[in-house]
Design a protein around this nucleic acid. Structure first.
Lengths: 237, 237
DNA sequence: GCCGGTTTTTGGTTTGGACCAATTATTCGT
DNA sequence: ACGAATAATTGGTCCAAACCAAAAACCGGC
């Protein structure tokens, strides 16, 4: 099973590696790729497969254990305790009862202002990180899952670009909810390659506006991306 | 490897080293050997002094930070936040590093839109709840602490009036930060009775606009209240 | 004086390796 | 076959080093 998602290579931003491992593993658990009660690969195997040090894998497993998704037994292995049924949820309780419309409204409020703040606040280094994510996006246009994850990373970088801890915290909640919505949408096969191409164009324009520090243009592109997401998420079946 | 106090040598029990470091440091903090607000030695120094690796020191500091005993700032150092006196209320980590300006920016983004949404969404019952809080505010104008608490309740009701769980969650973070800022401001005696009267007038106007479902008017009153808070919180000493 | 750049210090992240203890699998003597 | 000794595997702990970015300290020229 090639579950290749975000290549850990490149080693761009601090915290990126850990997040990648956590995201990957928790997704595999949530999607039952590692089924309930099943034993997941040894830490050393995971480290090799994901191309990271065992220490990092352990750090990730620590957090999954804290979330109650796995349980570890020395000498034996790590076992999935998460069960998609039975009311035990692994995702943030907020995201759980946030509908697509709620999400859309909140993004409409936050994102345009967020870009404005980011533009006047981002360091060149952060803009470069943004561009790196953009390149990765072009490279994975065939893989909708990977694309959505990179989109999220892109947005996260913009939020962090504002340098406002409160805004970052709030937007993390938004991203949680967004991830939730997109899981459902992708399951319904709404994210087609042609759509991805449209998105890609939007992000390129957004990035150029940011790099050029063109506030109004960036804000407009942000709104456009939102409208596109709206089409995708609120689409009828 | 010579140690000053409790040498971890001898028994090589698992976890002994970490526990030793945590015990040592938390004791030093509890006994005010590292006083409140004071900066404690750098991780590298501590590692050398205690005869352990920096990794272990960091692990220990992680736990002390989780307990709310210390707070770390990259490039600056680790500082004792533990205070043997005081109500010992743990504030959210987000609120901790959110400055007054960050808070103000975020409120400026959220609140005007929030009122709009609330107005078109609030049930009569919720409006009545608002009015009750308003009455209580008039009754406690002499008590600044109580007044601020009621203000928070007023805002929370508006947020809940939107019926948007995501927005509510975000705004809870904002309120956390606000509480934090106001603690400092009240300590500096900036919230005088005459100021409270001004606030009260603003809230009355805001409520009337909401009750009349006048969106623009309410949004304006909300912005006004924000400006007043700004005067209070960003005031020079 | 004081403002801007450079250097140093400090926490943050990741890697890689070594050893330990609990568990499981394997092998061997009878 | 069977059970005990043994080896291999797995998570748990700790160490050492390298590099990054944020903050602070420093320093030279206007």
């Amino acid at each position: 099973m090639s579950n290749a998602t975000l290549p850990p290579a490149g080693a761009s931003l601090p915290g990126a590696t850990l997040r990648y491992v956590i995201e990957t593993l928790s997704t595999r658990i949530a999607t039952q790729e590692y089924a309930t009660e099943e034993r997941l690969p040894s830490e050393r195997q995971l480290a090799q497969e994901l191309g990271v040090a065992r220490n990092t894998v352990r750090e990730a497993l620590d957090q999954l254990e804290a979330r109650g998704m796995i349980r570890r037994r020395a000498g034996s292995g790590s076992f999935v305790t998460y069960d998609p049924e039975g009311g035990s949820e692994a995702l943030s309780p907020v995201a759980a009862d946030t509908g697509p419309l709620h999400l859309q409204v909140m993004r409409g409020i936050l994102e345009p202002e967020m870009v404005r703040l980011a533009i006047v606040n981002m360091a060149p280094r952060q803009i470069e990180a943004l561009s790196k994510v953009l390149s990765k996006m072009e490279a994975v246009q065939a893989d909708a899952t990977a694309f959505v994850r990179l989109e999220e990373e892109f947005h996260r970088l913009i939020a962090e670009g504002t340098g406002n801890p409160l805004l970052i915290a709030c937007y993390n909640l938004v991203l949680d909810a967004r991830r939730q919505s997109f899981r459902a949408a992708m399951y319904r096969r709404h994210l087609t390659p042609s759509r991805i191409a449209i998105y890609q164009r939007g992000y390129n324009g957004l990035f150029n506006a940011i790099a050029a520090r063109d506030i109004e243009e960036a804000s407009e592109f942000m709104k456009l991306a939102l409208v596109e997401d709206q089409r995708l998420l609120l689409q009828e079946d």
